Amino acid sequence: MKSTNNKKNYFTIEDFEKGLILAGYVTPQTENELEELEALDDYDSSLAKERSITYFKRAVLAAEIVNALKEELTFGRVKFQKLVYLCEHACNMNLQERYAKFAAGPFDNNFMHSINKEFKKQKWFDIRIDNSKGYHKPIYSRTSHTEKYKIYYSRYFGEQNEAINKVIGLFRNTKTRQVELVATIYYCILEINENNDSRNIETLLTYFYKFDDSKKQFSKEEIKNKLGWMKENGIMPASK
């Protein structure tokens, strides 16, 4: 079908030259061009700084989760990932767009594949990989620098500490499958809100089973019961 919009957009030589300047291919020739380029550099620097701060805050939050659960037998990679997701929402960090749909639930690939390197860089934990059960399980142990993350934790999450510890406490001994279920339900409800769909059990089930084929392992009754548990324990997204 042809577009009904016949309006054409014309670009001048000045527009083209400005684009080259802002892209760094051409040196600014006037004071105005220099000011525009400096403004863009300042904006880019501001964005980079904001991303860096956000990443570090997430690393601090992840450190709190690891420190609290590292000795629990049920604590592994997938459970860690889902608890980071749920705790971030408990803190209203608004990072939903960073998560993609994976078989085991919402997952931020970039963050989770870099977090152990950050732990080592900060010397907050020693990490070894246990392959004895046929899969990779990080084993975390404290170092002489572990307590240092708490300085940042108090600064960043002092007001949210109760909410974070509530999430950690609720799932302390919970098996990974149940944490995956809660995180997926949570993600689906947020997606329902974003799409302005009706927030009811039928809609939730539709979104849930479309999330990934692996979600068929969960029965409708299991999803309904877990949703009730989430409501009882206050692990629910706010209504839009």
Rank of each mutant, 00 (worst) to 15 (best):
M1P: 14
N5Y: 11
T12R: 07
T12M: 04
I13R: 15
D15C: 12
K18P: 12
G19I: 00
Y25S: 13
P28E: 03
P28Q: 11
P28R: 08
Q29Y: 06
N32H: 06
N32A: 11
E33Q: 12
E33D: 05
E33N: 05
L34A: 15
E35H: 08
E35F: 04
E36N: 13
E38N: 10
L40I: 00
L40A: 08
D41Y: 01
Y43A: 05
D44K: 02
D44R: 02
S45N: 13
S46F: 01
E50Y: 06
R51H: 03
S52P: 07
T54Q: 11
Y55V: 12
F56E: 14
K70S: 02
E71R: 05
E72N: 15
T74V: 01
G76F: 01
R77I: 00
V78N: 13
V78M: 10
K79F: 09
F80C: 03
Q81S: 15
Q81E: 06
C87V: 04
A90I: 02
N94Y: 05
R98G: 11
R98H: 14
F102C: 01
G105H: 01
F107D: 12
N109E: 15
F111V: 12
I115T: 11
E118V: 05
K120P: 05
K123L: 06
D126H: 15
I127A: 12
I129V: 06
I129A: 05
N131W: 02
K133D: 08
G134Q: 14
H136Y: 12
I139Q: 07
R142Q: 11
R142Y: 03
H145M: 02
T146H: 11
E147Q: 13
E147G: 12
K148G: 03
I151K: 09
F157R: 14
F157K: 13
N161C: 06
V167E: 05
V167H: 11
G169R: 03
F171L: 02
N173Y: 07
N173S: 10
T174I: 03
T174M: 10
K175D: 13
K175R: 09
T176W: 04
V179C: 15
L181C: 13
Y186I: 00
C188S: 13
I189V: 04
E191A: 15
E191T: 12
I192P: 14
E194F: 06
N195C: 10
S198R: 09
T203Y: 03
T206M: 11
Y209G: 13
K210W: 02
F211H: 15
F211D: 04
D212Y: 01
K215V: 00
F218L: 00
K220T: 10
K224C: 08
K226C: 08
L227W: 03
L227F: 03
W229F: 12
K231G: 10
E232G: 07
N233D: 04
G234K: 05
A238V: 08
S239W: 00
K240D: 07
K240P: 15
